[in-house]
Design a protein around this nucleic acid. Structure first.
Lengths: 325, 325
DNA sequence: CTGTTAGCGCGTTCAT
DNA sequence: ATGAACGCGCTAACAG
């Protein structure tokens, strides 16, 4: 391994001078700079970020904890975060938590050990103290975490109400809801929105559990449809489950949207791959990831955040599965 | 920050002793060990992996370069790699290259600077010298890289031939192929397989360019169908493009598989979300990621690999879009 | 403008 | 069984 010392020797200067050249700071004569740069090139020298981190207590690395990268919602987020942090010369550690507290804690420790400069987390299981004791800039993404932790989310409740209202306005008489997991904040808010909207219209609640998964949703909703053949609309807690609903409908030879209107939430690409394409409340996913990353970098730079809790609206993307009458 | 020194002071021993306890090596009296462990707990001490890496020249981090995490094939791979490396106490840096040589090189430099212990790469653009000068264990995944770089891939050529043969055997008379990008090895092999199989049967080649993307594929294949209404089978270079083909068929009101048989390649989840579900040559994606990660760890541990170039078969998953007559 | 030097936190000889 | 001391590669005073 070629070190700063080797470069110094090659260029016949001191290590300090080399350091000045690398970091582009302090005075250094043009001629010496040229000599050093030549030596660097000749030796193919790359500064050792580990040594640098040790001294600076800044690693230029950030952590990102997501529940499960194979859930199509998250890759977009990861992409956005990486695009932003990268431009600022940061690298990103990715961690899959499986919504498992133990794993999350393990990852936090690892991050701490590696001296990361900050982290973005998508979690409902971690508690404030776990995060606070890192004593590091943290941004909560996709899910609100705690008042004292800056966050980037969508207005799940109000946007979900809009979704249900859309089904109502278009003449659906019996609207079901496919719920997500009980322990996920988002999921609860979307469910509550459905219930409040329905109650306000004095309409009966018909629900089943889809666990944010395709197969679970398909199965549960199939049962629900069998028991309630007059269901003519469904609001799924996320797009993955909306696809499940579509599959269930197909099994019973129901036409969408003629017999059944299907409404999703999230705006993932799946909604465009299926037929009919699914109407959904699209989150500005990439934008959210970008924002969270930008905020994190600001915190790392010691700046203060303009908005601590950023809440986005969704965009209702009307497609085939539920449309204006 | 609490360091090894603080622990030493608290436990009234030397740093060397604390180090011995942490790393569980060398002799240390049970009583002193207890004292040290108590101090560690009291101070909530965590060893600083940065300092450790500096000394050991081992960071317990590995790099993983993928073209684009939003392509549904890769999250599975990422998942598998992470699951394996994690068990061995490694953390994974994720990098999106966009198949862009510049980005890939930038990432390699970053990895080097951060002193990673090894890397897994999915790339066709990098050249041997770029990778070799890292002087680090490297595994090529999904795409063969160079004879001297261990790899984990599927037998693209032969498995693609099987796919085409399946369409032939089931009576397709005019079979088209939707090609992937020209610069990706996999894509070329699958195309060649199609061409060889067709030529062997003295059947005409009908091709269009799908770029491994949904929209591109849909658009290109739509045109192709218009010009060749008698196409009754299509082998898409990957599943994403197979979905595009399905959408194109729907636009022309063609029934799948009655009017048109559709065959994909990869085995991503999309093939199950659409209707009809797509017949595809499913790669053991998770297994491949696991294998690559395992191999990398073996190399890092200084072991020799049993198989340097691992080639998997695919599994033909016969579903609705193309089936036995 | 440039060089010398003292650590950053840790692991490891080498003594004891 | 334990401690003192050196060095991993780098940066930031401090001198000159």
């Amino acid at each position: 391994m070629v070190t700063i010392k080797d470069v110094a020797k090659e260029a016949q200067v001191s290590v300090a001078t080399v350091s000045r050249v690398i970091n582009n700071q302090g005075y250094v004569h043009e001629d010496t700079r040229a000599k050093v740069e030549k030596a660097i090139k000749a030796l193919q020298y790359r500064p050792n970020n580990v040594a640098r981190s040790l001294f600076k207590k800044k690693s230029k690395m950030i952590g990102f904890i997501v529940p499960d990268i194979t859930n199509p919602y998250f890759p977009q987020l990861v992409r956005a975060v990486e695009d932003v942090t990268n431009k600022a010369e940061y690298t990103t550690f990715l961690c899959n938590s499986d919504e498992d507290l133990k794993k999350e804690l393990m990852y936090l420790e690892k991050m701490q050990e590696n001296h990361i400069d900050g982290a973005i987390i998508v979690s409902n299981t971690l508690e404030l103290e776990h995060v606070e004791r890192l004593n590091l800039p943290i941004i909560a993404l996709d899910r609100f975490f705690h008042n004292s932790i800056p966050s980037v989310t969508v207005d799940n409740y109000n946007e979900a109400r809009k979704a249900v209202r859309f089904l109502l306005e278009n003449g659906c008489k019996k609207i079901a809801h496919i719920k997500g997991p009980k322990y996920i904040e988002n999921s609860i808010l979307r469910q509550k929105a459905y219930e409040d909207e329905m109650n306000e219209q004095n309409m009966p609640l018909i629900e089943c559990e889809g666990e944010y998964h395709l197969k679970d949703s398909e199965k549960a909703f199939l049962e629900l449809l069998k028991q309630n053949p007059d269901i003519d609309g469904v609001f799924a807690g996320n797009d993955v489950m909306a696809v499940g609903a579509l599959k269930a409908a197909r099994r019973l030879n129901l036409s969408v949207p003629e017999d059944l209107s299907v409404m999703g939430f999230d705006g993932i690409e799946w909604t465009e791959t299926v037929s009919p394409e699914i109407t959904t409340m699209a989150q500005p996913i990439y934008e959210m990831g970008k924002r969270a990353a930008t905020m994190l970098l600001e915190l790392i730079d010691g700046k203060r955040l303009d908005d601590v809790h950023v809440v986005y609206d969704t965009e209702m993307v009307i497609r085939e599965s539920a449309k204006r009458r």
